[in-house]
Design a protein around this nucleic acid. Structure first.
Lengths: 215, 215
DNA sequence: TATTATACTTAACACTGTTATTTTTGTCAA
DNA sequence: TTGACAAAAATAACAGTGTTAAGTATAATA
């Protein structure tokens, strides 16, 4: 057999493999999108693999060819939420140059995300931590960066002496706790409306101005 | 038959009924304590009625003679936690007469409870709200009072003009969000230690002094 | 066309909460 | 003490769950 034959055969083989892999990837995406839909609709508690399988028209065991188990599927489902989250915070960071206003901007974006994607937020920061931390090693670093943005903004505000404080880690974590508290309380308790949450955020800003700002 | 006979028969009947009811109540308590133990040990996710049944040596269906369903049993299990919680806040309230210090004291007690009883706290304020709110009508008012204590302390601080602010509801809810944020973040994320949480609480106090206090 | 790897399904296991039905137990009056 | 009756408890069953091992089609390769 000639050299060109050999390469053609090789090309066909490669293309074939590629086609099959894309088909597999397509099914994976189908599972993922069905899972996301069902998860957002029915929530964490009622989310089931068998229901996802029924939705896409495959047997439940087929899902295991694409995901290790239910936990991983659910995690991959929220990964999109994580990316959205990071992007929203980044945009909020870039929205202004004034260091203090930046922190406020990030906080607002944080709460906005939580209230717009409560099901995702719940899974990300309110559910059992194991859930996230067990899978973190296997995925890109699009998660930890979220906190890093806030931390950076606060560091810069400290350096610019716009706010006062000493600890590099304690203050970011505390401010994180502030917005997380507002967000998660609003998600958990029905009597706290979105407006109420945003009002709290506004009052929080006033307090932080007196409590943190130098000027 | 004489009158005394009649009353004796009645007395026996009453006593008998009483005895049976106490026996029933005792089993109920047995279920409750086994449930609490298993719940605290294995957490919400792994808690199962059948395991409780096995623990007490009865068939699973027997539990339904004492509790409407799993949800109610779990709720009754946390009721004790709620009572502890309310009492801790009340004690914290009474610990000092200085209005601002009172708020700080309550906040500290709040976080302390959350860190000491994380499983209870999770069920109380981090789990699906429906869980609590569906059962609230059927039980005594030992729950709502928890927030009332904080609200009262803040109202008094406002009246005494020790702190400034206007809204009667917004500020208490925000301060609740502060402590809840610190507590729930510490519970959810393994990298936040108890000491870290208490340090945050301390820094929070410093900020609140500048941000809220008048003097 | 036969072989072999891949995709997929079936069947099964060990669980779950919950309900209807049946059995056991204990109490009461005759 | 026996028979009727009510309460307590157990069995069996239903409809689900996640997950694994084993089997069957399907499609690619030699």
């Amino acid at each position: 057999m000639s050299k060109s034959d050999s390469t053609r055969a090789q090309r066909i083989k490669t293309k074939s493999l590629e086609r099959r892999e894309q088909k597999k990837l397509k099914l994976r995406e189908e599972i993922l999108s069905a899972a996301t839909e069902l998860f957002l609709e029915h929530g964490y508690e009622k989310f089931s693999l068998r229901q996802v399988a029924e939705e896409i028209g495959y047997s439940p065991t087929s899902i295991y060819l694409h995901f290790k188990n239910k936990e991983e599927l659910l995690f991959m489902t929220t990964l999109e939420g994580f990316r959205n989250f990071g992007q929203m915070l980044q945009t909020a960071y870039e929205a202004t140059n004034e260091p203090f206003e930046r922190i406020i901007s990030i906080g607002r974006a944080y709460v906005k995300f939580a209230l717009e994607y409560p099901v995702h937020y719940r899974l990300m920061f309110m559910q059992d931590s194991d859930f996230i931390y067990k899978q973190l090693p296997d995925c890109d670093g699009s998660i930890i960066d979220s906190f890093a943005i806030l931390q950076k903004a606060i560091s810069e505000a400290l350096e610019a002496k716009v706010i006062h404080g000493q600890d590099e880690l304690l203050l970011p974590t505390l401010i994180w706790a502030y917005v997380h508290g507002i967000a998660s309380l609003a998600i958990s308790l029905p009597e706290i409306s979105k407006e109420h949450a945003y009002d709290m955020l506004e009052l929080n800003k006033v307090i932080l101005i007196s409590g943190l700002k130098t000027s």
